[in-house]
Amino acid sequence: MRYSFLDQFSDLDSFIHRLDPRTKLVSCLAFILAIVLTPPGRWQVFLGYFSLLLILIIISKVPVFYVLKRSLVILPFVVLVSLFIPFFKEGEVAGSYNLWLWQVSVTYTGLAILGNVVTKAWLCVLGLILLSATTGITDLLKGLEGLGIPRVIVLILSFMYRYIFVVVDEAMWMRQAWHSRSFGNKGLRQIKTLGNIIGSLFVRSYERGERVYVAMLARGFDGKVRTLHSLTFRKADFYCGGLWFILLVVTGVFLW
């Protein structure tokens, strides 16, 4: 399997890539909180935040096209929610259509709510894409631990990361075997096959989990995990984090 499918571009070298993961995590969270807290309809504030993030994306050397393409990930949910928009009955009507038996009318209130949430969701997703494209997963996990996420959760996440490649590979082999044997296999039979695949994947994964544990025991595992900490919070992190926070506040306050 292609090793980089999880954290593509995180091995580039740029000023952003070199920052401490904790700085990046907190800055990303601050950015998302700033956007979520902005009241609806303040388009100039959203534009300000977008420009700030665009500058960071350009500094980070991550291709802008890649970031934009990845941001389409929010589309399914947006489509799902936008189905409800015609049913806002209050407010001025922007247009109405006759659908078979229904008189459907789209109001400005409904459209404004949709526009607001979609803009917010899109900006936040851009921030998260920048975070994952500039931070390797091991660093991200160390950063999470440094920020007070319980040790056990970080450990489970790091085991998950280690075995995702193995388990996904197994799943893909079985899927390939399934597809090459099941030409025209449709409906319930297909569900049955998929159930068998996921079932054997479960049995194999469970046995693998036990084997891993036994192997760890054999090497002296006593429930504690000791790691060499290599996170360093440098001056650059301090200034960058501070500057980013000030810029967010200034943009929010002055463009209000």
């Binding site: 056990v152 450990l155 489970i156 996440l157 790091s158 085991f159 998950m160 280690r162 075995y163 995702i164 193995v166 388990v167 996904v168 197994e170 799943a171 996921i198 994947l201 479960f202 994964s205 469970y206 693998r208 989990g209 036990e210 891993v212 544990y213 760890m216 995990v225």
Partner: peptide, 14 residues
Amino acid sequence: VPLMGVMAAFIFAA
């Protein structure tokens, strides 16, 4: 810890 890590990877793959 190892068991749940592998099982989370399993759900992810499924």
